[in-house]
Amino acid sequence: MEAFSHLIAAFDQEQADADKAAAAAASAGFAYGLAAIGPGIGIGYLVGKSVEAMARQPEAAGMVRTTMFLGIAFTEALALIGFVVFILIGL
């Protein structure tokens, strides 16, 4: 009988681990998906405005492009932090 209790304990542990892994995977997916919304909108808006500016003043295109990359870098950081969280809790 003692042997069975050991076995059941082992299975329980395994089941709990699997549950935990499933919950972690699901929440990781949510975390990344939520983290991608804001930066997605932000980068789209930013690039759209930059293209508009470049089309209006092609002679200032170099400066606008540099600033655009800086802005993208700052905006993207949020999504990337979400990605790191995804890696940390999900995989």
């Binding site: 870098a73 700052f74 993207e76 950081a77 990337l80 932090i81 990605f83 790191v84 890696i87």
Partner: peptide
Amino acid sequence: FSLMVRLFANMLA
């Protein structure tokens, strides 16, 4: 922190 995470996470992704 953002400098580090940006480079790391982009390449890892």
